[in-house]
Design a protein around this nucleic acid. Sequence first.
RNA 1: GCCGAUGUAGCUCAGCUGGUAGAGCAACUGAUUCGUAAUCAGUAGGUCCGCGGUUCAAAUCCGCGCAUCGGCUCCA
Length: 642
Amino acid sequence: MRIVFPDSSSKEFEAGTTGLEIASDISRGLAKQALLVRFNGRLLDLEEPLEEDGNLEILTFQEDEGRDALRHSCAHLMAGAVQKLFPGTILGIGPSIEDGFYYDMQIPDFPGISAFEAISAEMERQVKEDIPFIRIEMDCDEAVELFRSRGEDYKLELLEEIRDKGEVISVYRHGDFVDLCRGPHVPSTGYLRHFRLLSTAGAYWRGDENNPMLTRIYGTVFDTAKHLQQHLDMLEEARKRDHRKLGPELGLFAMGGDGGPGLAYWLPAGTVVREELEDLWKKAHVKAGYQLVRTPHIAPVELWKTSGHNDYYRENMYFLEVDKGEYALKPMNCPGHIIIYKNSRRSYRELPIRLAELGVVYRYEKSGVLHGLMRVRGFTVDDGHIFCSEDQIVDEIKGVVRFALYFLRIFDFGYRIELSMMDRENTGKYAGIPDEWEKVEAALGRALEDMGEEYTPVPGEAVFYGPKIDIKLRDALGRYWQGPTIQFDFNIPQRFNLTYVGDDGREHRVYMVHRALFGSVERFIGNLIEHYAGNLPGWLAPRQAVILPITESQLGRAEEIGRIVSEAGLRNYVDGRSETVGYRIREAETGKVPYMLIVGEREAASGEVSLRVHGEGDRGTMPLEEALEIVMAGCRRPELPE
RNA sequence: GCCGAUGUAGCUCAGCUGGUAGAGCAACUGAUUCGUAAUCAGUAGGUCCGCGGUUCAAAUCCGCGCAUCGGCUCCA
């Protein structure tokens, strides 16, 4: 048979040769790295005999498929170890995931993470034994028989669903362990040397709250000890950057305790950060043609009935009684902005109308989902609503995308754009008419294409009221976060009968776009803290410079410098405590103050300072003006857009 | 809300099988006047998350709450 390789070279092999043998034929190194193959588009085990001509790709840990196979195999290894140590364990599912794998199991008397040591030891033993993973194909009835005899009720449930598809059933066995599995797998447990069990959690069978909860064990596995270590280091780095630790440590905000769960209290230093950020936001919005507005925190429940929130968002809302009438705390800003839109009769000449507000909203979130600043019960949406006519849509969308990217660039975030569209199979659940959707989805796509931005269309991901563009931001550790979102709304303009008078003198339905660039100011600051590991850019730093007299004799000069620095518009303080210079420098470093101006006897006499930059170290002695230039440049506020 | 873990001084943590709470850092006071990431000494600081129970005796054992963390679910 003739085998064609990805570089389109080809070679003749005897029929029945396996992928592994072919890899060995190419090079020893490749044979060692090979985990599985793609043959004529199908993923196969390395030891599967190839019987016909075809295109062959040998996959290693470098490829997604290789990582998946390794991780999925390790999930089997782990589940096998658990079943051995905890007889009576029933298997759920155990897929590979980004960065690792998990397995959901019903484990009798599972003691929690204290069992990790024993499970790992058993896994290691099986790695040493180098037990082969064996693929066995059978028909559905045989498989049912097999799993029934093993008491694997969940597998039986899965089999009933596969049955209809009429596919060949495959199971994989290693030692005593058997699992229903499409494969492919790596050849043997010996490939799984570099694993680590990470955490355990509860997970509902098939993700359904009404089903029993299984024990999920997370782990990861890599091809080399080095890669495993790098990953563990990355997790450690993420842990160190955790905004829930850094935020309170740097005096930015306080949460929990008497303040109530899911509510952030901004300390003076954190408030400086917010004010700077919000100040830039406001100025940039005014420049981008938005009008700033303000709306109250509570509104009569009738408003929420009109908007529909009272029906479909009720379980997330807080209600209160006012003069025997019912009010609700606002979970969103849009109805408020609509009241402003409707305050006067709108003409096509006014459009587009762009309203923006840093609006504080309150949403009831289940206690288990709260997470630092990322998921809270009260937060500030940097909300904006654009009211426009149909022919303005593309330009408006472009404007918002450009505006969103302006903010991401300021903070050196990477990004990825997703376009969420309706599910064409199920148009009934959406507001508006399918034709309008098509039109707007096309307009959103066109706007992105015109701008030269790549995006991933995600059919079926749209919310019921309209298609949307989501920009995920990528931080310094390569993690993705919810970023700017631009959502079309076919529903609300209709509910509130939002119109404008066209040049034909008739009323037209206005198009409406919701957009948020930070999403939530709180969450965005949480992202910034983790992205910068707490070392915020100079313009956001709560304390931009500290002036350190070496001894008490320079205290007067230090205070004089402090005044000069303040006049230059920089936030600074003098640390003249009777501690050693080393101590005070250390404190400024750990407090992440970007600049230190040190003045000793020599500098005081010559009008100089010694400049030290956070994270960089001593920059030497220089005239005060020169140092001030450097500090001012490092603390300069970003340019406004355009 | 659900599963699991955790909760001791402002922070990080010790406290063995029940016998009545400790360290380092921080804070405060004093001394020290110092040249680029921790000067020395002293003082003070605790409802051992809360409530209830078992016990002669509970930080420790049991129950119920609460909060936090890891997930699940949810996410207009």
